[in-house]
Design a protein around this nucleic acid. Structure first.
Lengths: 198, 198
DNA sequence: CCTCCATGTTTCCAGCGGTAACTTTGAACT
DNA sequence: AGTTCAAAGTTACCGCTGGAAACATGGAGG
């Protein structure tokens, strides 16, 4: 069924996912460096052209990484949903924590210029919209908001969490901050959005 | 005093700022494309090596662009400060409007990886901190907040404005939105932060 | 007038993303 | 079991990039 993925075999076996793993690995070692397709291929022990058997181009590989990231974000939101007592601070901290844990994927999730060809909407765009709707659902349930109200509030919250995440990752004024510090800042910011209990 | 900047003279005269202008021009034509130093030099009518007489490397040029951006942001905040009746929505709309108007500079202002060498804090970092403090000042004055309170609130507001700006510029789920639409979204989001009058 | 140095130019390099043409190899069919 | 064939590797090449080095130009001060 599955060809073996021995280190000596000419055919790799699971190269596509191995490349994605290699990319994450490289990014883990140098979160702010440029990620080159060739470096990813080298890390996977394969010539750079091999990557093109599995991804149309570099963008496609990055898109796959972004999709992985959206998967993790959805899992986090679903987990929060199970609890019925979370605060806005919990949501924001979880969001920022994800950005700190997998910065490469996180950045790609929201960077159309790097991931998408000149072309039109695609699976990545849909993932983004789906996640946004999921957030609106989770927050509406938690705070008993009507549809429109919930969507507007979710957008207000999302942009704020996202802002904290992005600034903590990239801004020269905030970079170098530790993961827990970033989550703490997310909590402080989110506290201004916490709806008053009625 | 100033050498002439005729198009026929061997020595350009104001190449440094001409390069920055060229970069802004290129970015205006294709806001999502990559910006190459060589393309900037070509646009300025000069060989790519000439740029290195004025900027240590590409990062230095990008840093100069970011500093220009910070200058514009400060001007915008000072202008708001003159008025004493602005709303959070006004601030957010102005911030997002800036991002839409000069996306290249805006992105660079908050992207340490592209602008800063491995090195430590520099003028850019300080500009970022200065602007953040200015926002805290402006909002504290407007809403009568004590220092700590004002700083926390300013951060909550800043992250939200920034989130909207970044998402509208880059996120596949929101890109393609028009400038006015983006500003409208910023107003909606900011309305959740508007302090209650006492 | 002549010289010098700031500011240009040309030329070169390695690394990048991407394409094309060639090679290997496991699996499917007879 | 032996043959064949396509999937999945390889090497070699292209143009472009950021950057360094060596050379050219020409305006300002002696």
């Amino acid at each position: 069924m599955f060809p073996m993925a021995t280190s000596t075999s000419y055919h790799h076996g699971h190269l596509a996912s191995a490349l994605l793993d290699a990319a994450t690995e490289i990014a883990g070692e140098d979160p702010n460096g440029e990620l080159s397709l060739r470096a990813v291929a080298r890390r996977a022990g394969v010539s750079h052209s091999a990557a093109y058997r599995h991804f149309a181009d570099k963008r496609a590989l990055l898109r796959a990484l972004a999709l992985r990231g959206f998967g993790e974000l959805e899992a986090i939101l679903m987990e929060l949903r199970e609890r019925d007592d979370f605060t806005m601070g919990d949501v924001a901290a979880a969001y920022v924590g994800l950005a700190q844990r997998i910065p490469l994927e996180f950045r790609l999730m929201f960077d159309g210029a790097q991931c998408l060809p000149p072309g039109q909407p695609d699976a990545l765009t849909e993932s983004g919209i789906g996640t946004r709707d999921l957030l609106a659902l989770v927050l509406s349930e938690r705070y008993g908001l009507a549809k429109d109200e919930g969507e507007a509030f979710a957008f207000a919250a999302w942009s704020q969490m996202h802002g904290v995440a992005v600034l903590a990752l990239d801004s020269p004024a905030l970079r170098g901050i530790s993961g827990p510090e970033a989550e703490g800042m997310a909590r402080v910011a989110a506290s201004f959005l916490e709806p008053k209990p009625r």
